[in-house]
Every structure is written in C-alpha cells, then in structure tokens.
C-alpha cells in the first residue's frame, strides 16, 4: 500500500488541505473568506473583469497575477463577440469547480487519474431575458455535465468521485440552492 501511495500523483497537495481542515475546525473565524472581482464596461455589451485580491485566514491575499476576463455576446445577438457570454462563465465556473474537486478527492482516495474531460451544457429559453413570456425564467432551465474519466479505479469508484465532488462543490451549491444577491449603487 505504501508503495502505491507514493506513486499516486494528481498534483494535489492533499496533506495541506487536510491540515487546513483540521486548523479551520478549531478556528471558525479564519474560515471566513471573501472572493472579489471588478468589472468595467468597455462599450456595447463588452466588459472587462479582473480578479486579483481576496481575503481569508484572517488576512488579505493576492493571486500571483491579475487575471482578466472579457465578456460580451456573440454576433447573433448583434454584439461584437469580444469574449465569452456571462452565462458561459457560469458554466466554466461550475465545471472547473467540479473538475478540481474530482482531482482532489481522487488524490485523497489514492486514485490515479489519467484523463478527465467534461462537457457542460446549459439550456436557456431566450423568451425569458427578452421579456416575451414572464413565465419563462431568465436563467438556465437546466444544466447537464458529462464526464469522461480515465483512472485506475472501478466504474463505481469513479462515479463516487464525481458524486462526492458535487457534494463538496461551492459552485454546484450556488447553482442548486438560492443565494441572496444584493446590488447597490454608490
């Protein structure tokens, strides 16, 4: 078993995460994090968002670099298509959260991953955001994620990885349960 443990490497430092879990169990205040982004309108439906700082563990932190994200709408919406649409960012958020979770849980369960590929589809009825039918919601009426995973594990163990990742995913939680959103103007 020891030999096996040494050879499993999905590139996730599970020991550090287990340490953090233990530390944050006894220090609930340090577990309070805040994630932030800024967004600036560029013209038309094009905006540029940046992500840099966040807080947690009782301190301020910065990403190694500032990450920038152009968002726009495609030409079929008579936009200039400078970037992904905001709803596509939501899909990216979900599937990257689940995929990171799968790698972490696989490392913890000593499962070597060889490849993990997901496709995510969000279905939407435009009659909602265009105000054509007030009974149609603005957002997705459903999201479907499909994983193809190659790993040293049984089919059930792979399914269990994907199920556990959903159970522990922040974005999955935000999309499946309501979140209070407050928007103010200064």
């Amino acid at each position: 078993m020891t030999e096996l443990e040494n050879t499993i490497d999905n590139g996730v430092n599970v020991d550090a995460l287990i340490g953090a879990r233990a530390a944050l169990t006894d220090a609930p205040d340090a577990a309070q994090f805040q994630w932030r982004a800024t967004c600036e309108w560029k013209g038309g439906t094009h905006s540029l968002s940046t992500v840099h700082g966040f807080s947690g563990l009782g301190d301020e932190h910065q990403h190694k670099t500032t990450f920038c994200f152009d968002a726009d709408h495609p030409e079929v919406f008579a936009s200039e298509d400078h970037g992904a649409t905001p709803v596509e960012f939501v899909l990216v958020g979900l599937v990257s959260c689940l995929t990171g979770g799968i790698a972490t849980i696989a490392q913890y369960r000593k499962i070597q991953l060889r490849s993990v590929i997901a496709t995510v589809e969000g279905n939407m009825n435009l009659q909602g955001i265009l105000g054509i039918d007030s009974k149609v919601r603005n957002g997705f009426n459903g999201i479907k994620v499909t994983y193809k995973i190659d790993a040293d594990a049984s089919e059930d163990d792979i399914r269990a990885l994907v199920a556990q990742s959903q159970k522990r995913s922040a974005v999955y939680d935000m999309l499946t349960s309501p979140t209070n959103v407050t928007v103010i103007v200064e």
Binding site: A163, Q164, K167, Y172, D173, L175, T176, S177
Partner: peptide, 11 residues
Amino acid sequence: FAGSLHNKCDL
C-alpha cells in the same frame, strides 16, 4: 428546493 436531488440519490 435545491436542484441537487440527482446527486443525493447517486451518493
């Protein structure tokens, strides 16, 4: 009600 029923049943 949360949209997580599929995963609750899978688990």
